[in-house]
Design a protein around this nucleic acid. Structure first.
Length: 795
DNA sequence: ATCCTGATTTTTTTT
DNA sequence: AAATCAGGAT
């Protein structure tokens, strides 16, 4: 918020570069000594770097967060920056919280005023202050993935696009990618080469119009619009650029183009101008980025690894510091990780080393199926906790997996053995229907144009306002240009609305008008939320269910509990928040950007379960990685898309979470979508030198022929044919490192020697693609490798 | 408008 | 196996 931005008009006098060595009599001298003690040489160099660009290449476990937090403290102690002049960006809320806590401990005081948050949160904050310049109000709504997808679905319905042929998800991911490259709808249209891309352009244009009309932004817009506003208004850009005298970015390898551009706008610098691109900006260039190209795992979110690889092109004078000493893992684990990652090409050479000794070998286990795997993991956890000489606590153990769906079986096994655990991520608190309903009520109160929230809430609880009535209300608001709120307030004006619907809507609008009064009166959001839940009849409807049919009772009770929890969250917010005029907006913004309420707890005697992606940045003495099978990890879809190297980096991330004991397990058989699938052990397992593992038979065989053991199992995989009509299983998709050009993607235009032109409507495991042909409209499954089919060059 | 049922689809990964 | 969807009956 601009009013909170410090006045930095006073120039830069004493607080510039030259003070790595503190004056002995400086008031902070003692604290500075303390701060720098215990850092190794390169770490200290990074922490005490003065002004100007800084690239820290930080291998896994090399004390990256330590360097960042200490650097922030250093900047403040040496008075190179005040708290409010620091912008420190992380990728996840979890990381931001972690960092805030550690900085507070270092400074032994609060960090208020410091912008320590995710990219998205920082952008949202900038936009709440500046969005009016772009035609939004400051109370704009943030649509999450699900909301955005609903809206896209409506757009493509209205365009008459067959949602079977082009799914909302496929179109959304195209639009999302475009936004992350800072391509507006018009840019996308210009570049569109295929029929599919033309359709996406139509959808994109409409979607954008709708978002603006609804005064709403999706996640990608937060970045895109923030960049827009900084590019369009030099005065805004320079204000923020001056305000943030030091910008620090964690996980820089995961930045995408929009994020990259945002940073350039804030600090100046940038690559040589590309045609049509405005680069080369004035600025203080106090940008410190930390990252590890080997841990880049967000390519699917348009992360561009070149941002870190080319940092020195952007800032030729950048100081580059490598952190290569690992303080986390045993030598064995590091060797295993390094051995795997060397199979990737390119990247920045690093020599990670550790003084922690060899430790145990990597434990590799083959199990019959996912249930046996889960039992093994749980049994081993019990054994370690009871028998291991180090007596690890449950909290020191993490179980990692590739996809959220895999947690279930492991959870079951843990429950059976009565071991307490926590799942990070997965089914998120805020994705539950009742929570989303409650939030939608609040969103519509805050933003009367928010059609998505209105349609979610209007008939929940049941008020007899079905699809047809809702469509009429929305259409009326669109044609007359009034907000849905206003449209709903005057039901009689809406053409075609039935008498019953008019009556019902009148009542509903009245209730909402009353609640809007409460918003006007600045009721604390906790109280407001309670009022919403009771006056709209939402809670009542749920309570009615607890007295109804037996099966639904438990569920309804759970929902009520969840809502109580949300009220609790709101009350905590009220307690913490200052007396803001717009607390409802701030609260909603916070909810939109914080993924899960039940966040990670420590020292709680809980085993932790999470996806490999969620594990980034964390460490555990004991780590299990389950599902090390080709097709699962590396994921079959990643293989199809030629993203093997990214999967390998993900594996690297998983392995390097481990301090001491690493378990890699795989199952010969696993149920996928309810039907049994046979698979081979992950190729990544074979990339670990056998002498580092405890699987002795493997040692002999895999030296001779790495796939020797796998081969017979490939034949065992013949059962896949008898199994459940998934011919080939993963075995065929195994064509190692297939050139990325080979893989077909959904929506691509292709031409077949016999059937003519068509479009890829789905990509299946085993190199099978489904193509719908324009000629006769037929849909056929083809083996991508062998069928006489090729991609039509778009354009 | 709502509810039921059978069919179809879903699983990457996250802000 | 679970969740969502489409179509039809009430």
């Amino acid at each position: 918020m601009p009013q909170r931005l410090p006045d930095t008009s006073t120039g830069t006098s004493a607080d510039t570069a030259e003070l790595p060595e503190p004056e002995p009599e400086s008031p902070h001298a003692e604290r500075l000594q303390e701060l720098l003690a215990g850092l190794n040489e390169p770490q200290r160099e990074a922490v005490t770097h003065g002004e100007g660009p800084l690239l820290i290449l930080a291998g896994a476990g090399s004390g990256k967060t330590r360097v960042l937090t200490h650097r922030v403290a250093f900047l403040i102690y040496t008075e190179q920056a005040r708290a409010s002049e620091i912008l420190a960006i992380t990728f996840t809320n979890k990381a931001a919280e972690e960092m805030r806590g550690r900085v507070e401990r270092l400074l032994s005081r609060g960090t208020r005023g410091m912008w320590l948050m995710t990219f998205h949160a920082a952008c949202a904050r900038i936009l709440r202050a500046e969005a009016e310049r772009l035609g939004y109000t400051r109370r704009f709504t943030i649509y999450d993935q699900a909301d955005a997808r609903r809206l896209i679905r409506r757009c493509i319905d209205e365009l008459g696009i067959d949602p079977k042929r082009f799914t909302p998800a496929a179109i959304h991911s195209q639009i999302s990618a475009a936004k992350n490259q800072l391509h507006a709808a018009s840019d996308y249209r210009e570049a569109a080469g295929s029929q599919f891309e033309e359709l996406v352009a139509d959808a994109y244009e409409r979607y954008e119009r709708e978002l603006l009309r609804m005064n709403a932004m999706d996640f990608d817009d937060l970045l895109f619009r923030a960049v827009n506003v900084l590019e369009l208004y030099e005065e805004v850009r320079s204000r923020y650029a001056r305000a943030f005298r030091h910008v620090l970015v964690d996980e820089y390898q995961d930045t995408n183009h929009a994020q990259y551009r945002l940073l350039q706008l804030l600090v100046g610098g940038g690559r040589a101008p590309v045609r049509g691109e405005r680069v080369q900006l004035e600025g203080h260039r106090n940008l410190a980025v930390v990252g590890d190209d080997s841990q880049s795992i967000y390519g699917f979110r348009c992360a561009d690894i070149r941002n870190i690889l080319d940092f020195r092109d952007d800032f030729p004078d950048a100081r580059v510091i490598k952190l290569e000493q690992n303080y986390r893992s045993t030598q064995t684990i590091l060797r295993a990780a390094n051995a795997v990652i060397t199979n990737n090409r390119g990247g920045i050479a690093k020599r990670l080393w550790s003084e922690l000794g060899d430790g145990s070998p990597v434990h590799v286990r083959e199990l019959e199926d996912e249930h046996a795997e889960a039992r093994f993991v749980v049994g081993e956890i019990e054994r370690l906790v009871d028998e291991d000489p180090t007596h690890p606590a449950h909290a020191e153990i993490a179980v990692l997996y590739r996809t959220n769906a895999m947690s279930r079986v492991i959870e079951d096994a843990l429950v059976r053995r009565e071991i307490a655990y926590q799942v990070i991520g997965g089914t998120k608190f805020y994705e539950r229907a009742e929570i989303r309903d409650a939030i939608a009520y609040l969103s519509w109160l805050a933003n009367p144009f928010d059609v998505v929230s209105f349609t979610r809430v209007a008939n929940s609880p049941r008020r007899g306002l079905g699809q047809t009535s809702l469509a009429r209300i929305v259409a009326h608001s669109a044609t007359t240009g009034i907000s849905v709120w206003e449209a709903a307030a005057a039901p009689a004006e809406i053409p075609g609305l039935g008498a019953a619907a008019v009556k019902s809507l009148t009542r509903f609008a009245c209730t909402m008008a009353e609640l809007a009064q409460l918003v006007e009166q600045r009721l604390p959001v906790g109280d407001l939320l309670e009022a919403v839940l009771s006056r709209t009849g939402y809670l009542e409807a749920l309570e009615a269910e607890t007295r109804g049919a037996a099966e639904k009772v438990i569920e309804a009770q759970g929902r009520i509990e969840n809502l109580d929890q949300l009220v609790e969250v709101a009350r905590e917010f009220d307690a913490a928040a200052s007396e803001d005029d717009d607390s409802l907006d701030v609260f909603l913004q916070q909810l939109a950007l914080v993924a899960d309420a039940d966040s990670r707890r420590e020292d709680d005697g809980l085993v932790t379960l999470m996806t490999l992606h969620n594990a980034k940045g964390l460490e555990y003495p004991i780590v299990f990685i389950a599902g090390c099978e080709d097709g699962v990890f590396p994921h079959s879809r990643a293989l199809d898309e030629g993203a093997l190297e990214e999967e390998r980096r993900l594996f690297y991330v998983g392995v390097t979470r481990t301090k001491r004991e690493l378990y890699l397990t795989y199952a010969r058989q696993r149920s996928v979508f309810g039907s049994p699938t046979y698979s081979l052990r992950s190729r990544f397992l074979d990339e670990i030198p056998a002498e580092l593992t405890d699987c002795e038979e493997e040692l002999v065989l895999s030296r001779a022929a790495p796939r020797a053991r796998a081969a017979p199992r490939a034949r065992a995989g013949t059962a896949a044919w008898t199994g459940h009509g998934r011919p080939g299983g993963w075995a065929d998709s195994r064509a190692p490192d297939a050139p990325p050009g080979r893989a077909f993607r959904m929506g691509e235009d292709v031409v077949h020697a016999a059937f003519g032109e068509g479009v890829v409507t789905s990509v299946e495991p085993g190199g099978v693609i489904v193509v719908r042909f324009a000629g006769d409209g037929s849909e056929r499954k083809l083996m991508a490798e062998h069928a006489p089919v090729r991609r039509v060059r778009s354009g």
